[in-house]
Amino acid sequence: MATPAAPASGVRNGAGPEWGGFEEHIQVGGGSAVIDMENMDDTSGSSFEDMGELHQRLREEEVDADAAAAEEEDGEFLGMKGFKGQLSRQVADQMWQAGKRQASRAFSLYANIDILRPYFDVEPAQVRSRLLESMIPIKMVNFPQKVAGELYGPLMLVFTLVAILLHGMKTSDTIIREGTLMGTAIGTCFGYWLGVSSFIYFLAYLCNAQITMLQMLALLGYGLFGHCIVLFITYNIHLHALFYLFWLLVGGLSTLRMVAVLVSRTVGPTQRLLLCGTLATLHMLFLLYLHFAYHKVVEGILDTLEGPNVPPMQRVPRDIPAVLPAAGLPVTVLNATAKAIAVTLQSH
């Protein structure tokens, strides 16, 4: 320690003029204190003892300035203002840094998990009872029904639906070009869940229904339980009558449950009709689509396999005037619009 001490003193002495300069600057007047600080930022490195000393001196300066004459007040005022400005800028900078750090942390994975964790806070018994309740419509319209904002059940139901869809696609030998079965299944299920939820949420906003996005996601997600049951059974037992029965019964029950909840949370008959009609239509048609999209394909492929020359799944546009007389239908059946269509088709 003794060895570096001697050169250090030399350096200190060498740095003397700088310090002298500082003193002069400060002693000129309070008004130049701001400039001094800026100078100091440039000249001295990052040693913070300088900072402390300067702070001390500034404080002394303030005391002196208080005692000083009135003509110096202008300069002093400016100096104080500058100092405060510097301070507030520093504080603001620190705040900004802290905010930025927090924001970037929120985007990191674990923070995201912590944000989502409350929505997955369920017990197995709760999930079981909610699954059962999703099939039981409650006829209570006057008082808003409770919807648990939870995402575990809906997410698992969507994944189950994906698995069932994959199963259905495999058994029906569905061929998807430019894509995998897995991607299609995931896209369909998540697309329906997220897409319809946001659409209904938007409608609910328009219709002034009291429902949050989270509740909507949970409601629609648990509504998919009926779909899962119906599709799982009917993909394995290919019986159209059975499917329609299940479609009306199970699908209808889960749809009714959602409709009942929405009705209880909406005011006004028109709004109720609009909201619930849209939801019910979409939900029931989705089940129909999922069933027949991967059920009809079997028959379609069988048809095309019999006639190898016909390109698969190609739709041929029909000529209406040619078809209708061939079917023996009287021309009087055609109303004005159909006539117009026929004319345009003929002209093309």
Partner: peptide
């Protein structure tokens, strides 16, 4: 050296804080 450079700075409170640092500066 610290005393030399900082002239009439006589208050005692910040001295122990910064005096040690001035020795370490390389």
């Amino acid at each position: 050296e610290a005393e030399e450079s900082s002239g009439e700075l006589e208050t005692a409170t910040p001295r122990p804080l910064f005096a040690g640092l001035s020795d370490i500066s390389i």
